[in-house]
């Protein structure tokens, strides 16, 4: 039996256009702003007559509220196709000397911060400037070699006056990363090897040599960028920061 709700008198006796359950529109030819309940009057009448309080209260809600509930249900449903991807949590830990820290893709152990005015194999941009070197042990803990550009972003200096390099979002990056034993630039960083390097920062000679520097370590994430579909180590984020004492270099210590 065909179920019909309110039909206009003029339409009585005419065949329904679409299917069998033709709902009468909520409003007539003139439009009114909806501020009342969302459900059509016929449905609400049936809910009232059914005696269920839940049905009556749900159908009495205005459209706004139903929309909010519907949106929450829809968002919860996105869990079925990837909505619950894990997010990495952040928190800035304190950096200590001689303690290996995991900053993907590297494991860095900061040993000491020294400064010197003469470094064979490296040229100062202006005479009188000095080199600040953060002596570190670098280990690539990933499965593939990584270019030196990623290592440069992994360790930066903060709050050190007079540095020649331009500061980025995450501090001032090193102007060179020199392997201590032969003075060459460390690139690419191969996995499975422990390198003794010095991250070199040039400081203006007119500022007094620092007694302590703030060192920041950044970790990268392996993935593809939004504009660049090639996979790589990107999105450096600071995870450790520490104030380390700085002293003048002793002659037998640094790069050849």
């Amino acid at each position: 039996m065909t179920r019909r709700t309110h039909t206009t008198p003029a339409a009585t006796g005419t065949r329904p256009l679409v299917g069998r359950h033709v709902r009468h529109p909520l409003h007539g030819p003139t439009l009114r702003r909806v501020s009342g309940p969302a459900a059509p009057p016929g449905l609400r009448a049936r809910a009232r007559s059914s005696g269920s309080r839940v049905a009556r209260r749900v159908l009495d809600q205005p459209l706004r509220r139903l929309g909010v509930v519907g949106a929450v249900v829809l968002l919860a449903a996105t869990a079925a196709f990837g909505g619950l991807e894990e997010q990495t949590d952040d928190g800035l830990e304190v950096l200590a000397v001689d303690e290996p820290v995991e900053v993907a893709p590297f494991e860095l152990t900061v040993q000491r911060v020294v400064w010197t005015t003469e470094l064979p194999g490296q040229t100062l941009s202006e005479p009188g400037n000095r080199w600040l070197g953060v002596v570190t042990t670098v280990r690539n803990t990933s499965d593939a070699g990584v270019l030196g550009t990623v290592l440069r972003e992994a360790l930066t200096l903060d709050d050190v006056p007079g540095l020649v390099g331009a500061p980025g979002d995450l501090g001032v990056p090193a102007s060179a990363v020199a392997v201590l034993v032969d003075g060459s630039e460390l690139s690419p960083v191969q996995p499975g090897l422990a390198y003794e390097v010095a991250f070199l920062f040039e400081q203006d000679g007119r500022t007094p040599p620092p007694s302590s520097v703030a060192v920041r370590l950044q970790r990268h994430v392996w993935g593809t960028g939004s504009l660049d579909p090639t996979a790589g180590w990107r999105d450096p984020t600071t995870v450790l920061r520490g104030n380390l004492p700085a002293r003048e270099a002793v002659t037998d210590e640094d790069a050849a």
Binding site: D143, A144, G145, V146, L147, G148, V179, S184, E185, L186, S187, P188, Q190, P191, G192
Partner: peptide, 19 residues
């Protein structure tokens, strides 16, 4: 160029640098 090591890791060789 790249070297697929016997230990399963990939060693990068670039157009300049140490490798």
């Amino acid at each position: 160029a790249e070297l697929l090591g016997g230990d399963g890791r990939t060693y990068t060789v670039f157009t300049g640098g140490r490798s």
